[in-house]
Design a protein around this nucleic acid. Structure first.
Length: 289
DNA sequence: AACCAGGGAAGAT
DNA sequence: ATCTTCCATGGT
């Protein structure tokens, strides 16, 4: 058993991060005690790591705890990368003071981009959630994991690509996947098993390369690539202009009668480069509850 | 009952 | 290249 503490350089709203993570019923956490359990897939082993907030948004301190005594450094690095503790959110806040989002950034300070726990898991979740309302989206992604994944210490590990590649479309139709969605999920997993898609490699390429390569797979369009780059890779400058949530938020703040178009949104978002991901997160946040 | 949902493919212009 | 239409399924 080991426990390690870490101080983030700027502000960091861990409680909001927990709230976002809590949208996913598969993630085990406690808002009151301020911890979340992160399933970590290692080379040949796996473990569950507890991450806990010990400080405040202004003076953020975190603890990372695990009973997996080997590979402590690897595990800690992984956690630090997932939560992006080294990204100085004070700098981001400063940047947005000169934009029309300054009021929102004042109201919602220290909103981090918390990465999904696993590259493949993230891609499957994004595909499954396409075009579905949040409630039903989580219903079927939870079914998917609880049917084909594995539980350990109360936390769920997504099924591996090998496991999903061997499924039949009807296995997912039984979970109320549409035929299309079943095909997207299984076919993409097969490409990953075949080596045709390498998510680790993709995660290190520039955005445009990822759009070209990942976007070729059937069922993976611009929205899915954007979300994967944003939430799986944790990149700073993604803005899903076609996203219905983003459009609803801008409709509200700009007091429009109808949702703005993708083109209108993209044009305005140029002013938020190179930190458009934080604009997106803060806009989503602003219309939650 | 009608419209929507944190899309995408396939077909039509 | 850009626009429509269809797909598919539950939520409000």
């Amino acid at each position: 058993m080991w426990k390690e503490y870490y101080h983030a350089p700027g502000m960091y709203d861990f409680d909001y991060a927990l709230k976002r993570l809590g949208m996913d019923p598969l993630i085990r956490l406690d808002m009151k005690e301020r911890w979340v359990d992160v399933p970590v897939q290692l080379e040949n082993d796996r473990t569950v790591v507890r991450v806990k907030a010990e400080g405040t948004t202004e003076k953020p301190v975190f603890s990372v705890m695990s009973d997996h005594d080997e590979e402590q450094d690897v595990i800690f690095e992984h956690i630090r990368n997932i939560f992006q503790w080294d990204k100085d959110l004070n700098e981001i806040h400063q940047f947005f003071q000169q934009t029309e989002l300054s009021m929102l950034f004042h109201q919602y300070q220290g909103t981090p981009v918390v990465r999904d726990f696993h590259l493949y898991q993230s891609l499957m979740k994004v595909i499954i959630h396409q075009q579905l309302n949040m409630k039903f989206a989580y219903t079927i992604s939870t079914r998917f994991v609880q049917t084909f994944g594995e539980e350990e210490d109360g936390s769920w590990f997504y099924p591996t690509p090998d496991k999903v590649a061997q499924l039949e479309y009807d296995d997912l139709r039984n979970l109320q996947f549409s035929q299309r969605k079943a095909e997207y999920v299984i076919d993409t997993s097969r490409k990953i098993v075949d080596g045709e898609l390498n998510l680790q490699k993709l995660s290190k390429l520039p955005n445009e390369e990822v759009f070209k390569t990942l976007g070729k797979a059937r069922g993976i369009g611009p929205w899915t690539v954007e979300n994967w780059l944003l939430f799986a890779c944790g990149r700073d400058d993604l803005f899903p202009a076609a996203d219905i949530g983003i459009q609803n938020a801008l409709k509200k703040w700009w007091q429009l009668d109808a949702k703005p178009t993708k083109v209108e949104v993209e044009k305005k978002a140029k002013e938020w480069e190179p930190y458009r991901s934080f604009a997106a997160l803060t806009l989503w946040r602003s219309i939650e509850d």
